[in-house]
Write a protein that binds this DNA or RNA. Sequence first.
DNA 1: TGAACATATGAATATATATTCATATGTTAT
DNA 2: ATAACATATGAATATATATTCATATGTTCA
Lengths: 119, 119
Amino acid sequence: MLDERRDSCECSVIHEDIVNMARKNMPKEEHLYDLAELFKVFGDTTRIKILYALFTSEMCVCDIASLINMTQSAVSHQLRVLKQARLVKYRKEGKVVYYSLDDDHIKQIFDQGFMHITE
Amino acid sequence: MLDERRDSCECSVIHEDIVNMARKNMPKEEHLYDLAELFKVFGDTTRIKILYALFTSEMCVCDIASLINMTQSAVSHQLRVLKQARLVKYRKEGKVVYYSLDDDHIKQIFDQGFMHITE
DNA sequence: TGAACATATGAATATATATTCATATGTTAT
DNA sequence: ATAACATATGAATATATATTCATATGTTCA
């Protein structure tokens, strides 16, 4: 009997045809990584709250901080993460910085997520 | 001039009307927490790969481990996380355990995520 | 010019979690 | 009964990251 053991898997392939098909359907490693990074950004209550706030309207850092009851610093740090993920954009008006959503898919992703947790 | 400073926010509310409106639209704390927990589960490459594998077909632990080139133990640990999040279910057939998807929204969430990262 | 203010940011700390390793559990076949 | 095997799991380690604290940057207004 063939020994299909691999380096990092101490058990053998049982259904080779299915594994091969799944391998074909698997997106590129790079895309999978980017997708995980995106969801990682959504995987934090503070950032979720910030994004929900921005569903209502563009908002400055102070207002967001007051709304979700977090320090200005914590909010600013998280806005940076959201900015890097291209989920929010900003505009400056004097010393006030207004943040707003930079993606149309967020709401739909959240809605789908809600369908899972409330079903 | 009013001092609107709060415990955990060292700056004042600038646009009270918008903050109030955003507060009304904000989902329950509990839901926001659950939503973040759900996305946290998606925020890991190994789990993303497992879920993509299961888009093709139900699959046993060994096959998944071989496919994504991870140890049986690591896969089993992550399957537990996915199970706890009610994203996968399983059936036993002798000593082999077959895992499959337990949610219809996952694919749509992933597709929306792809639209963000590839746009 | 300088005080007040909105925001950003680096460093440190605390906490969560992914993987590994060793081993346990439970099933099949001889 | 026992060997072989598929899977599960507890503990330990390593790593990522959220928040805090102190402070820097840049703007407005008196």
